[in-house]
């Protein structure tokens, strides 16, 4: 255990060092650089900016910058980026494109979607998953293909399974087919042809992805009950490793792989294990102490910190975010944000 901690510390130190080298001399690219954007899903979606030193907290920056003429739409689900542009996906079938550092409005894309969820970028195009009618088992979910030059939806790819999380790895697009603990596969799309090239079966529903050193990791779990971490070989799209996680954990979600460790949340706890660990004891890295099932509504690990959000249990009041040190689990900050904070995005 001590050796592990030591290892972690050294990893963290190395990470800090490398990051500060990159960032030291860069001038801020806008008011919302050098901080984290927290996406709050709504009513009408908002974005909260929190500076890295926690000294600046600004609610609803889209409104602050752009006024009333535009809004981000209802139920903002996620954000993806293409260079300086941020694409904010709203469940009311639209994507609002803004400058990620200034949050100045650029464009709205509002046709070609049906309950859009998540997006990623590959081969000069953006790929956005759509839940469509939310039917189950899903038959009508699809991926919209957006031309990043014209910002028009130029094609759709039917997944014939739930289309939820989406990520680009090794030049391919991976779509998780899990939805609220159901579904058990991952769809692979070739962005040069926009055709499905493989389907990877999983034991449980994949609910979150991350990439480390060109390897794709997916956390798979039911709505409640046990889960596992799988590693996918992105050369041949086969499972290269399956890590069974403690059966005593329930509702596993929010995978984040960072510096040789993987993190996730379950029942208000944050778990952290080394990727090369061989034994997994059910010991929380951080026990938040919250019994709210919405603790962990959003989650990310970045730059030595763990960010976790807690949507209000009644979903009719502002949520909170908590920031922990990822080496020792100390609480560094907590801040009230907007309604239903569901994701963290780092500038």
């Amino acid at each position: 255990m001590n050796i592990k901690k030591l290892l972690l510390l050294s990893f963290t130190a190395a990470f800090f060092a490398s990051c500060s080298n990159d960032d030291d001399n860069r001038a801020p690219l806008g008011d919302y650089d050098n901080g984290v954007l927290v996406l709050n899903e709504g009513g009408t979606g908002t974005v909260t900016y929190i500076s890295d030193d926690f000294n600046t907290v600004q609610q609803d920056i889209f409104y602050e910058v752009n006024g009333e003429t535009q809004d981000l739409g209802q139920y903002t689900q996620s954000i993806f980026f293409d260079g300086d542009r941020a694409f904010v996906i709203s469940g009311s079938n639209k994507i609002t494109v803004v400058n990620r550092y200034t949050f100045e409005y650029i464009a709205t894309i509002d046709s070609g979607f049906a309950a859009p969820r998540y997006g990623t970028v590959a081969n000069g195009k953006a790929y956005v998953t759509n839940s469509n009618t939310f039917d189950f088992p899903a038959t009508d979910d699809y991926v919209s293909v957006i031309n990043l030059q014209t910002l028009a939806v130029v094609g759709t790819i039917n997944t014939n399974a739930s289309a939820e999380r989406i990520i680009e790895a090794n030049g391919k697009i991976y779509v998780s087919n899990g939805f609220f603990g159901s579904g058990n596969s991952i769809t692979v799309i070739d962005p040069s042809t926009d055709a499905i090239t493989a389907t990877i079966e999983t034991d449980f529903a994949p609910n979150s992805f991350d990439i480390e050193n060109g390897q794709l990791y997916a956390l798979c779990a039911g709505f409640s009950g046990a889960g596992e971490l799988i590693k996918i070989n992105t050369q041949n799209n086969t499972l290269s490793q399956t890590i069974e996680l403690p059966e005593t954990q329930s509702g596993l979600a929010n995978l984040d792989v960072d510096n040789g460790n993987f993190y996730y949340t379950a029942s208000g706890n944050i778990y952290k294990y080394a990727l090369n660990a061989t034994a997994f004891t059910d010991t929380a890295f951080v026990a938040t102490g919250s019994t709210n099932p919405y603790m962990g509504y959003g989650f990310a690990v970045n730059n030595g910190r763990i960010y976790i959000s807690e949507a209000a249990e009644d979903f009719t009041s502002d949520g909170k975010i908590f920031v922990y040190d990822n080496s020792n689990g100390t609480l560094l900050n907590q801040t009230t944000v907007g309604l239903g904070p569901n994701g963290f995005y780092f500038n």
Binding site: D71, G73, Q74, S90, S92, N93, K94, D110, F113
Partner: peptide
Amino acid sequence: SLISPSET
């Protein structure tokens, strides 16, 4: 009625 014009 729709809250956002792009809603279904």
